[in-house]
């Protein structure tokens, strides 16, 4: 098993925006680590900070929020809300003695195949270096 495959990242995506972008990465056969798995939700503003903490205390090395950014069809302030969720999770992690850098948020659009692949791969590399 390669080092990167042992690094595990949970991605929260959104059904209409970032999940199609992640699908597109696969459709184009862009490669990223199979240690990356995705849970898709309607909107990034619906992610509970406790889920992020739950993931990081149950074996995941990192959580990547593939947010809607300004594209969100539900909430005009989705960017602000999802950033607030990430910050709250980071604060809870700090209290548990876990590094806040294990949570990352980036806006991923419905055709952001390359940006997703690049960002998640960089995140996996950074996390695996931190583990070493």
């Amino acid at each position: 098993m390669s080092q990167s495959a042992t690094t595990r990242v949970l991605v929260f995506s959104t059904n209409n925006i970032s999940d199609p972008g992640i699908d597109l990465a696969g459709s184009r056969h862009l490669h990223y680590s199979p240690g990356v798995v995705v849970i898709s939700l309607p909107c990034a503003s619906g992610i509970k900070p406790s889920w992020i903490v739950h993931a990081l205390t149950h074996g995941f090395d990192g959580v990547f929020i593939a947010a809607d950014g300004d594209e969100c069809a539900y909430l005009t302030d989705c960017s602000k809300r999802s950033a607030g969720i990430a910050e709250q999770a980071q604060a809870e992690l700090a209290e548990l003695g876990l590094s806040p850098s294990r949570v990352r948020l980036a806006a991923i659009c419905s055709v952001c195949a390359e940006p997703f692949t690049k960002q998640v791969t960089e995140f996996v590399e950074e996390l695996s270096e931190a583990v070493v």
């Binding site: 098993m1 390669s2 495959a5 992640i22 699908d23 597109l24 990465a25 696969g26 459709s27 056969h29 862009l30 490669h31 990223y32 680590s33 199979p34 240690g35 798995v37 995705v38």
Partner: peptide, 25 residues
């Protein structure tokens, strides 16, 4: 469960990794 766009097609270079991930998914 999406084991094509978000698994087999994204990990054509790692059959073992893709199989393991499919089980998780």
């Amino acid at each position: 469960v999406n084991i094509r766009e978000q698994n087999s097609w994204a990990h054509t270079d790692d059959h073992e990794g893709a199989t393991r991930k499919a089980i998780q998914l």
